[in-house]
Design a binder for these strands. Sequence first.
DNA 1: GTCTATAACCGGATAGAC
DNA 2: GTCTATCCGGTTATAGAC
Lengths: 235, 235
Amino acid sequence: MKRKALYRKPLATTGSQAKKSEQTRSLILETALELFTERGYEETTMRAIADKAGVALGNTYYYFRSKEHLIQGFYDRLHELHRETCVPIIQRERTLKGRLLAVMRQILVNMEPYHQFAGVLFRSAADPHSPLNPFSSESEAVRKESVEWFAEVLKGTRVPADLETELPELLWLYHMGIVLFWIHDRSAKQVKTRRLMELTVEIITRLISIASLPLMRPLRKSAIELLTTLRQDVA
Amino acid sequence: MKRKALYRKPLATTGSQAKKSEQTRSLILETALELFTERGYEETTMRAIADKAGVALGNTYYYFRSKEHLIQGFYDRLHELHRETCVPIIQRERTLKGRLLAVMRQILVNMEPYHQFAGVLFRSAADPHSPLNPFSSESEAVRKESVEWFAEVLKGTRVPADLETELPELLWLYHMGIVLFWIHDRSAKQVKTRRLMELTVEIITRLISIASLPLMRPLRKSAIELLTTLRQDVA
DNA sequence: GTCTATAACCGGATAGAC
DNA sequence: GTCTATCCGGTTATAGAC
């Protein structure tokens, strides 16, 4: 299994020392991800990871507080991959629909290799007490950046003014919903998720474009009130 | 902590024998639920449950294949409580909005005592490989019944014909979304979820009532296509 | 078929020495 | 930072009693 080496988190320490520990950390994470994708999360023991990486069991716990935190490492990498691939798309595509479609498509492409063990990822993400929970403070940085991308997706397109502040967060939430469906998707190469995504992007762009009509005003009001309530909890 | 004794699953065996084993099963589940709500799921050991229930450790495994399966027991009870409380509501309330509001309110009331350990419940539910996953075959019976209640909620109200078959499943999905939010809701007595629910019920009933307008036809078409795709995966 | 008692296994997590 | 030893708890196995 080939993977781009995306993980690097240059710490503010002096040169080679920091580099060494960063290498060990990276080695452990790399090994863990390999084993996870090979034989699954539950089937991979911490001892096996330590063995294959050639370090002591205790050492893996020095770098990752728990087995779950290894998933957090995966999460971070995936996020970085999303950034590298999605930002150019936003610059290239000029319409809302074109951008949203291309970005969502790219996200699905990026995640595809990890479909088999993504269930575990979400299992943790769903637990309100887990650091992996996308609403948790630990995930705040990543979440904020993602929401900003969706703000970029909207930039320069026609959107009702009162919706403008709420929409990026809503699109992020939508994207989480698609990921949730993807995790449960058993169809070959997750074609169903792709179809679902294409249809919902169609609906969303339509909804946004008719949202300005006077007929829709009371509905839009309710929706905005709703989003304000929702946001208080997310932020 | 008081709780209605709702669990009974009369097996097709002869009288007192079956009753006895059913009592033991019930006792174990009851004890487990008590400890879970008292001190949390992770903090409750299988040994502690066995001790407090006054049975041998092995016996708890005789009745419940794993610690997770105890949650399934909780799930079943909650569902039965929902049935007992929601069916009368549907008979009493006559409008769509009134029914949906009252049913959703009741569901939140029923769940309230379990908010603290509900996270774990959902943690398992989110795993596509877990039997607790609401889309799994093990959960099919419960899911089907829930969807039927939502069909009852719609019965006798004005709904566009082409949406009629899809809406019950969609409302069930909506209710799952509310539960998801509720799990993550940290506000006192989960008032935020309640507010969110009230606002979304408002939006949903509005959406349904304007869905028949000619202007909305293309949007409704897309939505129905989407739901058909979605259903193939759920069913 | 229902239940007890006890020991053992396995793997995630921790403590503390170097 | 790295290791070894140990703990802890979910789970399994066994052997026997009613």
